[in-house]
């Protein structure tokens, strides 16, 4: 089974039908283990129980970047190899990525409130994630602005790749901007070294959320393929002379 074999949407559909239940089950089990472990994790000596927010904040933040990576690969697939599933994959990933980025922002803000005293601090990391979220929304708006899916795919692919190149630049400039006027004393989140008691639940949760993304992504891709079939059939129906 190579990537070329998957170029046939029908074969892709039968494959997803086979592996989706397994993926969903694995996700549910890992998520349950991760939630149990993070509930059992000890309190941080500095942050107290608030550190539990980390176990869902960090996986979401990780996914917010990972999904953009997946979309960039798909964009390459669209532009370079013209793989027929690449634009399906890119389109299906965008709303899911936006949702995870939104969750990273919200959990970060709920974590920041006890730590900083405000829901929002123009901290370099939070601000970069906010910009990433805005870029996701812009990308979704682009997908929704063009009616022909394959034309929209090429435009979105270019924007995704430009974004992938630009995100590190944005991150760097936001860091610079933030150190330029560093507000009083912002308590650094987490630390450079994490205790094992925190690290293991965090890793389990990160894997569980990644699996969750893969499951949702495959299911959304299946929807997108079916949507295109509906579109094709509707056009055929419109062009057929009425009997």
């Amino acid at each position: 089974m190579t990537l070329i074999d998957l170029a046939n949407p029908t074969r892709f559909l039968s494959l997803t039908a086979k592996i989706l239940p397994w993926l969903a089950a694995a996700t549910a089990i890992l998520l349950a283990i991760g939630l149990y472990q993070s509930a059992m994790a000890p309190d941080d000596y500095q942050q107290g129980a608030t550190v539990k927010i980390m176990f869902i904040h960090v996986p979401n933040a990780w996914l917010s970047m990972f999904v953009w990576g997946v979309m960039s690969l798909s964009a390459l697939g669209t532009l370079v190899w013209r793989h027929p599933l690449a634009d399906v994959s890119a389109k299906a990933a965008a709303p899911i990525g936006a949702a995870f980025t939104f969750l990273a922002l919200v959990t970060g803000s709920l974590w920041g409130r006890p730590m900083w005293g405000t829901y929002w601090e123009w901290d370099a990391r939070l601000t970069s994630v906010l910009i990433l979220f805005l870029m996701y929304l812009g990308l979704i708006a682009l997908w929704r602005a063009v009616e022909d899916p394959s034309r929209a795919a090429r435009a979105a692919a270019v924007l995704t790749l430009v974004g992938a190149i630009n995100i590190p630049i944005i991150k760097f400039s936001v860091d610079w901007w933030n150190t330029l006027h560093q507000p009083a004393s912002v308590l650094r989140m987490g630390g450079s070294t994490l205790d094992k008691a925190f690290l293991i639940p965090l890793l389990v949760m990160a894997v569980a959320f990644s699996l969750l993304f893969i499951t949702l992504h495959l299911a959304a891709m299946r929807n997108e393929i079916l949507r295109r079939r509906v579109r094709a059939l509707q056009m055929q129906q419109a062009s057929q002379p009425r009997a």
Binding site: G48, I56, A99, V106, L110, W111, P114, L212
Partner: peptide
């Protein structure tokens, strides 16, 4: 959960809510 229990519970609930919405939508 200490003095900030509501923040922790809210963040977990929100994540669950958004994930459920995603699943339901798909």
């Amino acid at each position: 959960l200490g003095p900030y229990a509501s923040f922790i519970v809210w963040s977990y609930l929100l994540v669950a809510l958004v994930v459920l919405i995603l699943i339901g939508w798909i």
